[in-house]
Design a protein around this nucleic acid. Structure first.
Length: 271
DNA sequence: AACTGTTACAACCGCCCCCCT
DNA sequence: AAGGGGGGCGGTTGTAACAGT
């Protein structure tokens, strides 16, 4: 009855990952690349289920992740994309390189929802909220409107028809090979390119040329593993990775915007 | 200083989709 | 064409950190 669990949960560890587990996971992927997640924990010597490993890697350990709060421009983009895509966080994340669906979802639930409500905008429908009723003021009712009830279709087949907010006179820089989280390739460690380690600029700051950014993941991880980073904040470590360093662009597939650049390049009036 | 409430986010759960056989 | 398995996705939970009293 029902489907088998993704793994035999007996004896498997749950909860927060330790530095040692992280190290094992990174070491394994560094050596072997991403392979079958189900088999990975055993091969890597981890008492975790494959799913947990995948999540840990994609949401936290992946070297191309940006850390820290979403910038104002990213936030605007998220709101705009949410208006068009609804809660399809992975789709939204694919337009923000270095951000994960989980991160965006969390940020939406903890920050943006409240901001929109304060502004009198329904975070579900993106329409102006009706004036609060007495019942609302007692906090007894929460909006029960679902995204499906809104005017925006969530039908997958309509993805192509999504209106770009940048249809007018915006200058768009388009690069079809731009990184897209939705399409994380199975990479060998040597295929992962990183910015130089002296790149410490904060998010959305103007930053230096990326032309010298080629450093293999292998080199990078070796550096990390040799410098006892496991005693440090992970954020400090992956800050080495810097941030994206280019322009805002239009994603070919969906005609939706995606950030590939710094804030100065963000010329779109999203709201 | 101690306690309580709130916030933020990492991690888990279960369903769904897609690919392979 | 059907069934099964792996991976992806969105919703939810747990908990640490922080703020307020």
């Amino acid at each position: 009855m029902g489907r088998q669990p993704c793994c035999d949960k007996v004896g498997l560890k749950k909860g927060p990952w330790t530095a040692d587990e992280d190290k094992k996971l990174i070491n394994f992927i560094l050596t072997n690349g991403q392979c079958c997640w189900r088999a990975l924990p055993k091969l890597a010597g981890l008492l975790r289920c494959g799913k947990s490993c995948r999540l840990r890697w994609t949401n936290y350990l992946r070297p191309d992740l940006k850390r820290g709060l979403l910038s104002a421009c990213e936030e605007k983009l998220v709101i705009d994309l949410h208006a068009q895509l609804g809660n399809r966080w992975s789709k939204i994340a694919s337009h923000l390189p270095g951000r994960t669906d989980n991160e965006i979802k969390n940020h939406w639930n903890t920050h943006i929802k409240k901001k929109l409500k304060k502004m009198g905008i329904d975070p579900v429908t993106h329409q102006p909220l009706p004036p609060p009723t007495a019942v609302d003021e007692l906090g007894a009712t929460e909006s029960t409107t679902t995204f499906e009830q809104s005017t925006i279709s969530t039908d997958e087949s309509n993805d192509d028809k999504i209106m770009s907010p940048f249809e007018s006179s915006d200058v768009l820089l388009v690069n079809s090979s731009d990184f897209c989280i939705d399409e994380i390739p199975v990479m060998e460690p040597h295929e992962i390119l990183l910015p130089p380690s002296d790149h410490h600029s904060p998010s959305c700051s103007s930053s230096s040329s990326s032309s010298n950014a080629a450093q293999s993941f292998q080199d990078y991880c070796s550096e990390i593993l040799n410098t006892n980073i496991w005693d440090q904040e992970f954020g400090d470590v992956f800050d080495l990775l810097g941030d994206f360093n280019g322009k805002a662009a239009l994603d070919f597939e969906s005609s939706l915007p995606m950030i590939i650049g710094d804030e100065d390049c963000w010329k779109f009036d999203v709201m």
